[in-house]
Design a binder for these strands. Structure first.
Lengths: 154, 154
DNA sequence: ACTCTAACTGATACTTAGTCTCATGTCAGA
DNA sequence: TCTGACATGAGACTAAGTATCAGTTAGAGT
């Protein structure tokens, strides 16, 4: 069974209807690049209303089909997701994204809990850098940065 | 020398003018709660234009006077900042924020680098939880959550 | 196969966060 | 005190997302 069919089936199981618009949004998502905005989806799913795309995206977020990606400038993009909780490793230079699940924030959380008396319930972590192929490429001539400064991200 | 005077002095040193509007924005910030939006500042600095507040906020971000805080819903708020790179620990229940600097993400970064061939250049981490006083309070009668679900934050 | 209705839809108006433009105002160096 | 580069406020604009509402439809029940 394809990803598409699986998701469609899941929709049904959760008591949601499988409508033409939802199928079209889904197709648009599955054909989209690593990360995209709602506007990208709108253009790839002509005829589907803006509000419906937003509604569908929210539904798919709840179903863990898509997740949000925090860009360095603070804007939010979307990305297809298969697992539940995970983090992203974004290449600043080509936009490539890798997921990582084995997030060892637990040690940090334990430490923070004892230092601060907070009970930690969740976290959001995005990591930015340069992927292998971009490193290889920039090892050559000039190193042109594709995307702006890191601002308050460190 | 007060915080305010220090920042004003710093403005001058960086070649920026010390104008009435900037002073009013600064006063508004210094009087604001743990985290706030540009709209909050606008209301506390009547007479200053929207665009000017946005411009000033950007300037103060560059100067590390304020930093952005990522709320769990994905919206961005602002907060007074004194140090450079740091992270936030937000209480979901009362909105309180603590900074932490001793972020042990370095171990994670080292691990990620070797696992993924990415060269890590930056990261963004926000941690959500419940502060001590909210824990104490909710240990009593009913536990009413002030803020919604954790969604894709884990 | 037919009916019925709650769920869904697209259009559109609205909200919120932020940027851009431009004529006017003003800080601070000479 | 003059002057020009820097800064300002007003308001139009963009982008992301929400709310409303009358019309449509999936799919459960017969």
């Amino acid at each position: 069974m394809s990803d598409r069919e699986l998701i469609v089936k899941h929709l049904g199981l959760r008591g949601h209807r499988v409508t033409g618009s939802r199928r079209r949004v889904l197709d648009a998502l599955l054909a989209a690049p690593a990360h995209f905005t709602v506007d990208d989806v709108l253009q790839r799913a002509p005829g589907v209303g803006r509000a419906t795309v937003f509604r569908t995206m929210k539904l798919l977020q709840d179903m863990n089909v898509v997740c949000r990606v925090l860009m360095e400038d603070g804007s939010l993009h979307y990305r297809l997701s298969t697992t539940g909780h995970h983090h992203h490793l974004l290449c600043r230079h080509c936009g490539r994204i890798e997921d990582f699940v084995n997030c060892d924030v637990s040690a940090l959380v334990t430490e923070l809990s004892s230092n601060t008396e907070f009970e930690i319930e969740g976290h959001w972590l995005e990591v930015y850098g340069r992927c292998q192929s971009c490193r290889a490429r920039s090892a050559g001539p000039a190193d042109k940065r594709a995307i702006g400064s890191a601002a308050d991200v460190g």
